[in-house]
Amino acid sequence: MQKQELSYKDTKFTVDTYWIDPLVDYEEQVDRPVVIICPGGGFKFHSDREAQPIALKFNSIGIHALVLRYQLVDDDHSVYPLSLQEMATTLNWLKTQSEHHIDLKKVILIGFSAGSQIVADFNSIMLDPEQREKIFNDELEVEPAVNVMGYPVVDMTLGWPKEDSWAMKISPDIYYWQAQEHLTKNGKPTFIWQTVTDEVVPVMNSIIYAQKMDMLKIPYEMHLFGSGSHGLSLATYVTQKPGVEKNLNDYDSKWWDLCVNWLKLQKILPKH
């Protein structure tokens, strides 16, 4: 892993890069898909359980991976719109990385919990030219092909965060609070998964985004598992906090295989 420092205007941010090296015994190199990962953490921190383990999992199926260390709440900045501008900057930066053999038509955005709201808002706001031009002056040269959202925050009026004061710190502009309200037909196909017993982010967040996608006839696949806690990540021993049994859930861990199948349906991965 190498850290790459990028900037939007006068604000610097970091991207962790997990490139798959070219294979020297190939006569012709393969252009591989790339995923940009937005870990959760309630906009207070970036959860490592949803960073490197997810990146390496994507590497294992032949996909380059980046972890976007997006803007958190601090004394100088709110999360929005800067996190969306950072994502757009990262996407455009991919175009300069030809030595890594990236298939720019197969870019995946994946978010977990709070990180999923950045993905959802990007899909809603930043892929619509009229909305995007209000906050991002440059051309968006690289667009994602698909999105993946795990136990996502979509609408900050549905139960997370519990305090409006924290929501105001995330964004004093309520325009960014409800991603589903700004979704247009420009949105990309999306895979969503969550547990119906999620004790932190109400499952209605997933349902309302899927419902809006359905209304707009944007392809999606949603899996709501019957039990399981918030913040499962891979739901295996790989991402289990020591001694925390609720991080293990063999049933819910199937989300990964379901997601890989869906990426094949979307022609991000070959079927065989």
Rank of each mutant, 00 (worst) to 15 (best):
T96P: 07
A120V: 10
D74S: 13
Q52N: 14
K241H: 10
A145S: 14
V142L: 05
F136W: 12
Y151D: 12
D155A: 11
W93Y: 15
I125K: 04
Q4F: 06
Q85C: 11
L248W: 00
P33N: 07
K254T: 14
Q117F: 03
K57H: 11
T197E: 14
L72N: 09
L91H: 01
I268G: 00
K217P: 00
C259N: 02
L94V: 10
P22T: 07
P129D: 15
D74Y: 05
N186W: 01
K217S: 13
S60D: 15
A65V: 11
P129A: 09
S233K: 06
I63D: 02
N92M: 08
L94Q: 10
R49K: 15
F136R: 09
G115K: 08
W177S: 02
P219C: 07
I37P: 01
V34A: 05
L183F: 01
T197F: 09
W93A: 11
V107H: 06
W255Y: 03
D138G: 07
D75Y: 07
K254S: 13
V24N: 09
Q131T: 10
D252G: 01
Q211D: 15
S124F: 03
S229L: 04
R32S: 06
M213Y: 10
W19C: 00
S83M: 01
E130T: 15
W19K: 00
G228K: 07
V79F: 01
F191I: 10
T89F: 00
H46E: 13
D164G: 12
K95W: 03
K44S: 14
L216G: 07
R69H: 15
L72C: 11
S7K: 14
I207S: 08
Y209P: 13
P144Q: 05
S165E: 15
K267S: 13
L68A: 12
D252M: 03
P270R: 05
V24D: 12
Y237N: 11
D76I: 04
V67K: 03
S233P: 11
V119I: 15
K188N: 04
P202E: 06
L94N: 08
L158W: 05
Y18I: 00
C38G: 03
V201K: 01
T239Y: 02
S47E: 12
I108S: 08
K162Y: 03
I108A: 09
T14G: 00
